[in-house]
Design a protein around this nucleic acid. Structure first.
Lengths: 334, 334
DNA sequence: TAAAATGTCGTGAACGTTCACGAATGATCA
DNA sequence: TGATCATTCGTGAACGTTCACGACATTTTA
């Protein structure tokens, strides 16, 4: 591991000063075309690359950002992360990835670890902690893009998936198919998107003159996973045989519910129809394939990164909230 | 965004020098217990965190590493990445993630982008580029852990999944089930693990007195994806109806093959048995569920990170190659 | 023609931390 | 008692880069 070339090495060989080299590679400040070319030749020859830590120390910009998500193993997030990363790399940014398993303590740890690292901004998905901590962070450190949670702060941008509308689409689809006894596998109580989704679910029912049965709305704690969906659906259906349709907070819960149906001898969709949310890749691969609400996760990631970049480069601009819309995808499970 | 507290702020308030603060937080060098406690109180109070860029500039260590993989959307990699990340965070390291889509140019770009970023090391999965580039990188920059490819270099550690053995297990299982006409959906030609796997496949056949039919071994280019598996299997089975079993390079190819079977009216496993490789979560969720070769992806990630840490901390130690073994998991597809 | 303006480049300082060294204090020993 | 040692702490330098400013040569302007 030999020593890497520094800006001084380049300067010495090119016969100019550090500053001139800096001007040449950053393409700013006054420099003649001739010397610029000369310097760049030497840069090329030595394979010189500016040390990002030294740059970061003086400019207070590191060209890095962080993503904080519950779990990259959850099939929703890889696509989202790719959206962020592809956009980021295109803009010369590198990306840190942190998993929290939905644990608020871990979220805070990740937040401050990234701050000490010197990231230029953070993208935060399904934040469960307190607004105050987040606002304090945004005050003291860097811009933040938050997904699926509303936080009002000049240094925080919000992107919301339209869970409310998605839930309505799902329930209306089930009602069209003739279902009247519809249950819901809801998300974790701490999740704000869960609240909006439940509201859409209830509103759709009442708008069609159907009663809302509180006992048929089951929260999934701590995380909306396959086994959670399996257990909740199992309990729900064996206690309430009159239920003929289930709407789930996400596809994992829905797929768990399908398994529960199979085990209880319910046929999907004949005996019990099921609708998921997110349209992860798995949704079209299971049997029966899953009717669900499509969310463009990759684009969501790109948008989040675009917002963050905008905030980094224009610190004083306002960042209005964005709502991302969703679509119904009908498959075999309804 | 107010200015962050620096070591000098702490020093001033605590009434000591920078160096004493440094000694207190890094818990090294001689310092009395009293002053240490005093300093740490101030650190706590100010919420001081050492600036990693300043640290990195002088120590040449950044407490960051990079992972380079083809695609985090491929279900194999999230679990692997979590293994790396969990271990890394536990050791106070942060992790950069780069996707290359199997493109060698992107691999090199990622490698040098990470080097400029100042990572302490790199974990490289399914590297497709030339040995020379990698060796030059390991010479000039930092230690590298390479998976599923053999590269001899003092600054490069190698971890291999035992594809050869896995392929043998799969084929022997099919032969036990009475199959004699077995085809293979192989990986991309550029992948070294593909070569070892094909060898295991062929050896298993010949050891049991069965002929190897070259035409029945199909490479998947450029990437071993669902649609690749579907197309290859479709073509293979419609041209060669005598085939009764397929062994696939990975689970995605295998699941694509299941779909092709369904479409051609072949029943799995009655008309055509299928074995995959990797045991991704999806494998147990599809219908019929997939017999496959289990690889502990999370542990693989942990091991890779452990090797890398060891190389970072003990630059002169030798790093022998590791072989990670695999197991057969029998499910409905055979 | 002298003064002002422009274009090009270099120099010292700063970013926040650690390292190598040295200074001061008190304890220990012959 | 004077010398030696261990313990504890502080000071200047360095890491590699950019920023603010100034210097110089050349061109433009009054």
């Amino acid at each position: 591991m030999e020593r890497l070339a520094t800006i001084n090495d380049v300067a010495k060989i090119a016969g100019v000063s550090r500053q001139t080299v800096s001007r040449a590679i950053n393409n700013k400040g006054e420099i003649s075309l001739d010397t610029r070319e000369q310097v760049l030749k030497v840069v090329q020859h030595l394979g010189y690359r500016p040390n990002r830590m030294a740059q970061g120390l003086v400019t207070q910009h590191t060209l890095t950002i962080g993503i904080i998500i519950p779990d990259i193993s959850n099939p929703f997030f890889p696509e989202f992360a790719r959206g962020v990363q592809d956009f980021a790399h295109q803009e010369e940014y590198n990306v840190f990835l942190c998993n929290t398993d939905g644990n608020p303590d871990e979220e805070v740890k990740a937040l401050y670890s990234l701050a000490a690292q010197g990231v230029d901004g953070v993208i935060l998905f399904t934040y469960q902690g307190s607004d105050d901590i987040l606002k304090e962070f945004a005050d003291k450190y860097h811009p933040v893009v938050v997904l699926n949670r509303y936080v009002e702060h000049p240094n925080i941008a919000v992107i919301m998936v339209n869970n409310y509308h998605g839930a309505k689409l799902a329930v209306e689809h089930l009602i069209e198919r003739g279902h009247t006894n519809i249950a819901m596998l809801a998300g974790p109580d701490t999740s704000p998107s869960k609240v909006r989704q439940v509201k859409g679910f209830c509103d759709a029912l009442t708008e069609h003159g159907l009663p809302v049965v509180a006992k048929w709305i089951i929260s999934s704690l701590p995380l909306p996973t396959l086994t959670q969906g399996y257990q909740s659906a199992h309990q729900l259906l064996s206690k309430n045989p009159q239920i003929t349709a289930i709407f789930a907070y996400n596809d994992l819960l829905a797929i768990g519910a399908i398994r529960a149906c199979n085990e209880l001898g319910y046929r999907v969709p004949t005996d019990c129809a099921i609708v998921g949310f997110d349209d992860i890749q798995l949704a079209s691969m299971v049997t029966p394939s899953l009717t669900t609400i499509y969310v463009n996760k990759y684009t969501l990631g790109e948008q989040a990164m675009a917002r963050l970049l905008n905030m980094i480069n224009n610190p004083d601009s306002v960042s209005p909230s964005i709502y991302v819309d969703v679509e119904l995808v009908v498959r075999e499970s309804t």
